[in-house]
């Protein structure tokens, strides 16, 4: 594997890291299976692409964050006020965003940023990697600080035990609005960076990102198991980078790029089923011993 490829994998891994931190908020902190992700990732890419073409790449990133937050708020609205099941709310958001994203992209499935100014265009290759890493670390730090505030603690408790939270004078609906906004804001930011990094945005760039994030979180969890929040966040980031390296390696070994999503799904299935299978085996053993 050449250094060039390794560096590319690292960059993408860091962007997966931002994506995974977002999904960590919805799936792990709030305990809500939010399917909006695929749509809000593309939303970020689309906003970032269009605004970059206007010559304002940094604004593009912030705009993408805001856009993602709004998508999260709408999803929370469906869940809390209209009482639509979380999974269905997410799917509805994802579908709606598909059309919206196409509109933002000017009704064409893809948008080339070739020649446009991006946050990376004036940097050399190493500085590009450094910039992505710094953005990731700053986001992780802010997230850590946020989750340790009064509000952050309430958010975590809301995902851990909603009954208790309602009995302790916290409005759980508000928590869901805030949490899903943050989650999708980060996912969208990852999409925005990715578009500028790859110099194009397309309407399907978000497809499968939820699985990427879940795989990253699970890999991280398997390697480093802790209930300490700081370590959990670090493990998500490490999981994301490692996961990207696994994909890059698979590609190097000649796996067809279109098969990567299947590979990711299999990885998630494997990671989730291993503990279940282990438990089954143990129960089997116990029964065997009982009979003997």
């Amino acid at each position: 594997m050449s250094l060039y490829i390794i560096q590319g994998a690292f960059d993408l891994g860091c962007m997966f890291g931002i994506l995974s931190l977002g999904v960590f908020i919805s799936f792990k902190v709030l305990n809500i299976p939010d399917m909006t992700v695929d749509g809000s990732f593309t939303l970020g890419a689309a906003i970032s692409g269009v605004v970059s073409l206007m010559g304002m790449p940094i604004l593009g990133i912030f705009g993408a964050f805001i856009g993602g937050c709004i998508a999260g708020l709408l999803c929370a609205f469906l869940q809390t006020k209209l009482k639509i099941q979380p999974i269905l709310s997410g799917i509805l958001m994802m579908i709606s965003l598909y059309s919206i994203n196409l509109r933002i992209l000017g009704n064409s499935p893809s948008l080339s940023l070739f020649g446009a100014e991006t946050i990376f265009s004036s940097l050399d290759r190493n500085m590009q990697s450094l910039l992505i890493l710094i953005i990731l670390l700053v986001i992780a730090l802010f997230l850590y600080l946020f989750l340790n505030t009064q509000l952050g603690l309430s958010l975590r408790a809301c995902g851990d035990n909603e009954v208790m939270v309602r009995a302790s004078s916290i409005n759980t609906d508000v928590m869901k609005f805030i949490g899903l906004a943050c989650a999708n804001g980060l996912v969208s930011t990852a999409g925005a960076l990715m578009a500028q990094y790859q110099v194009f945005a397309d309407s399907s760039s978000g497809t499968g990102t939820l699985i990427i994030a879940l795989a990253s979180i699970i890999i991280g969890e398997t390697l480093i198991r802790s209930f300490n929040l700081k370590i959990q966040l670090i493990s998500v980031i490490i999981g994301a980078i490692l996961y990207r390296f696994i994909l890059t390696m698979a590609l190097q070994f000649g796996v067809n790029p279109t098969d990567l999503k299947l590979l990711s799904a299999l990885l998630v299935i494997a990671a989730i089923s291993v503990p279940v299978l282990q438990e089954m085996r143990q129960r089997h053993k116990k029964r065997g011993a009982h009979r003997a």
Binding site: D160, N161, M164, V165
Partner: peptide, 17 residues
């Protein structure tokens, strides 16, 4: 199990209350 958040520490639970 209903009154406490299991994945948070004793201190965090009290802090919330």
């Amino acid at each position: 199990l209903k009154g406490t958040a299991p994945h948070m520490s004793v201190e965090e639970n009290l802090g919330l209350a």
